[in-house]
């Protein structure tokens, strides 16, 4: 505690006397919210716009991460050698590469070649205003859609390898007797997996999965490097235009903290709800 207090005091001292840094939180005002004369309303500033993009990115890549992770976890526990090899290859390939390198590879090779074929830029052209509003809220502005989709797929493919390993461990931790009891009752393998094994595996994996979601939210900051205007990208913009580096990045850190802490609390609450459901009823 003393060391921590001493360290903090030293940092404060450096700010005050050595750097002669003049804190000016007022400089951030416009980057969070600003009054739009044209619209006669409060509008989100760059940082909040960035936060919105980060949430979109985190949401869709989490969904895709779980689908991929679940699919590859099933590959890894498959009885067929082919699927096991495929799952092993994916996990081995992705986990042994830095996220940033993976992102660039993915961005320059795959998305510049494959995405134009899908015609994403034309999506929503024929949509009405209501549909356009929802598309914008869920997926961001249409002209940024191609980069957004790249970012989502890249993050999901990357994090999916870790989730695959978490779920594989969870699935394999369920005792063999559970399979035997369900199969012995005449249930098929798929029903056994879905109704008996997976619920138990998920419960055991929940804490690790929560950690992985938080890592994913934070990892989404690398998407700024392929020009997705998410929180880190916007903070970079703001700090270079207002010259208040410390305030801007402190604000960005606070926003990330709120999002991650919120996600962690949601998971903790979910875990508690399932935990208390299990603890119900006295032992006879």
């Amino acid at each position: 505690m003393a060391a921590l207090a001493g360290g903090l005091a030293y940092v404060a001292h450096r700010f005050g006397s050595v750097l002669h840094y003049r804190w000016d939180w007022g400089s951030l005002g416009g980057a969070l919210l600003h009054w739009s004369v044209a619209h006669h309303a409060w509008r989100a500033g760059l940082l909040l716009e960035g936060l919105e993009a980060t949430l979109r990115l985190a949401l869709w890549s989490s969904v895709l991460t779980f689908l991929l992770g679940f699919g590859f976890a099933l590959c890894r526990i498959s009885r067929s050698l082919y699927w096991r090899l495929l799952g092993g290859l994916y996990v081995g390939f992705v986990r042994n590469m830095p996220l940033l390198v993976f992102l660039f590879l993915f961005y320059f090779f795959l998305s510049s070649q494959i995405l134009p074929l899908l015609g994403l830029d034309r999506l929503g052209h024929g949509a009405g205003p209501a549909a356009r509003f929802w598309l914008g809220l869920l997926f961001g502005p249409p002209r940024e859609l191609s980069a957004f989709v790249t970012g989502v797929f890249c993050l999901a493919l990357f994090e999916g390898a870790y989730v695959a390993e978490i779920l594989r461990a969870g699935l394999q931790a369920v005792p063999r007797g559970q399979w035997e009891a369900a199969l012995g009752l005449g249930l098929g393998r798929r029903e056994t997996l879905w109704r008996v094994i997976l619920p138990q595996a998920l419960r055991a994996s929940l804490p690790a999965l929560a950690g992985q979601v938080i890592l994913l939210i934070k990892a989404s900051s690398v998407a700024s490097l392929i020009s997705i205007p998410e929180l880190t990208y916007m903070a970079n913009e703001v700090s270079s235009s207002n010259d208040h580096v410390f305030e801007t990045w402190t604000a960005a850190a606070a926003l990330y903290f709120v999002v991650c802490f919120g996600a962690a609390s949601l998971f903790a609450r979910w875990e508690r709800a399932r935990g208390t459901a299990l603890a119900a009823g006295p032992r006879a």
């Binding site: 559970q178 035997e180 369900a182 005449g186 249930l187 138990q200 299990l278």
Partner: peptide, 22 residues
């Protein structure tokens, strides 16, 4: 039908749900 040494009830399902699943 089979009954095991270690019971192997499904721990996430109630007694009734264990019985009606199959």
């Amino acid at each position: 039908g089979m009954v095991f040494q270690s019971f192997n009830l499904f721990p996430h399902l109630s007694v009734l749900e264990n019985c009606i699943l199959a």
